[in-house]
Design a protein around this nucleic acid. Structure first.
Lengths: 253, 253
DNA sequence: ACCTGAACACCGTTCAAGT
DNA sequence: ACCTGAACACCGTTCAAGT
């Protein structure tokens, strides 16, 4: 290929304007960059405009408002989530893999769980993700209603767990030590409670404070998947989709 | 009873100052009132001070900052939640009753789910609630780790479900019609997708959009409780606390 | 000891005016 | 058509000064 002929400097301002044009993609990319580096509170329209070397009012030509911007950022990162094609005999494991991939995405982007928690992902990537999620869940034999709701429940769970993990070390900057510090303090506090009034908290102070984020996540995943499986075969009789559990009494009616 | 002798007006300013003194309780009560009536975004320190007929800077003598105020509001409403004493043979039903009571609390206070979602309830009423929750969960035979985490999982679920229900009709003011409108629109949109690319969304457009909040809540509750029950008996062998589900492959290691 | 006014350093959004 | 400056109507928090 022939090399590009250098443009004479005196006409450069016209051909290549010093600022590349503002586009929605550039705005959303930059927003994600600020989010990763400085968190949601730092992501103001003014800060974003400054990063893009433009006036903050200019952004409104491309994004509507801040909330819509966050919708776009959320949909963008959804490309990072892997949702497997169903393979026979690996259903539960594949559901876990999907949830772990979603979790990894959250942990890779500071404060993204805060953005996701009260948003329904209806952007192009969100819709694509829903389709693939439903495809996987139905491959496990879940009836329609359970498949439709199961995806919601799983993603809500993953988001909430990521939110709680990130908010744990949000007070200060340290990520792991701070979490441990807090757990130790809480453990001491729980142990110090009067055992007559709080026998369960005193007894369970250990388990309550020793569960780390990974363990909590895997435990919750097991519980929800077990619950879905328990409901999967219940096409017979019950109008419920989930079989009544051991330990429950018959319905009062 | 003798009637009160009227105080001469010229000395009233001294005995009964026109403003009752600012206390933390009065601040928190008033904050909850604003929340119920106008929502979280309206609850600013300035708006709150105005309601209390004082300067906004005065609040900081009693509450630290806005975040701490929200902690206090959250702990206050926790008094409204009923957590039953365990009764034999009614475990699953009692767990449901507890979750429904928590949900009712959320639905009674606008935007409270937004406050609760990233907060660990460590105020006096929160601690009390944890103790009673653990007491109930353990009565169902849940091992320590599962009891400790199960309470968290259930309350996260209830909070997230309340959050999603309240954010559904947050765009406008209507509460029920708006939700139905949105569901109808979404249903039409999903049905209109190309069936070759989105077979599952097209097929499940009905179940996805027809699940109302109550149904979603009861369904999720069933799933989680079934999952907890499935793990309850698994003391034997597995280091997991939850038995591996049907459909899963053996662990890779 | 408790409360206040004023100030500081920010926000999101709109809109007339420019190029 | 796209971008800008200036303005509007707000924020949470701090702090010296008052009573």
């Amino acid at each position: 290929m022939p090399e590009e002929i250098p443009v004479p400097p005196w006409r450069r301002p016209k051909k290549a304007p010093p600022r590349m044009p503002l586009t929605q993609d550039r705005i959303v990319d930059t927003a994600l960059g600020i989010l990763d580096a400085e968190g949601l509170d730092a992501l103001s329209m003014r800060r974003l405009a400054q990063e893009l070397k433009t006036g903050h009012a200019s952004l409104y030509a491309h994004v509507g408002n801040r909330d819509e911007l966050l919708d776009l950022v959320f949909d963008l990162v959804l490309t990072e989530v892997d949702i497997p094609e169903p393979e026979p005999g690996r259903w539960a494991e594949q559901v876990k893999e999907m949830c772990r991939s979603l979790r990894r995405m959250f942990l890779a982007h500071r404060d993204l769980a805060r953005i996701a928690i009260d948003r329904v992902p209806l952007g192009p990537n969100g819709i694509m993700g829903m389709e693939r999620t439903l495809n996987l869940l139905r491959a496990g034999g879940l009836q329609d209603e359970l498949a439709a709701y199961g995806g919601d429940l799983l993603s809500t769970f993953v988001t909430a767990e990521a939110l709680e993990q990130s908010s744990r070390h949000s007070g200060a900057e340290q990520s792991q030590e701070q979490a441990g510090m807090f757990a130790d303090q809480l453990h001491g506090y729980l142990k110090s409670l009067p055992a007559t009034q709080f026998p369960n908290l005193v007894h369970l102070a250990g388990p309550i404070t020793s569960l780390d984020s990974d363990r909590r996540f895997e435990l919750g995943l097991e519980i929800i998947i077990a619950g879905l499986v328990a409901g999967a075969g219940a096409d017979d009789g019950a109008d419920d989709g989930v079989r009544s559990s051991a330990g429950s009494t018959p319905p009062e009616s």
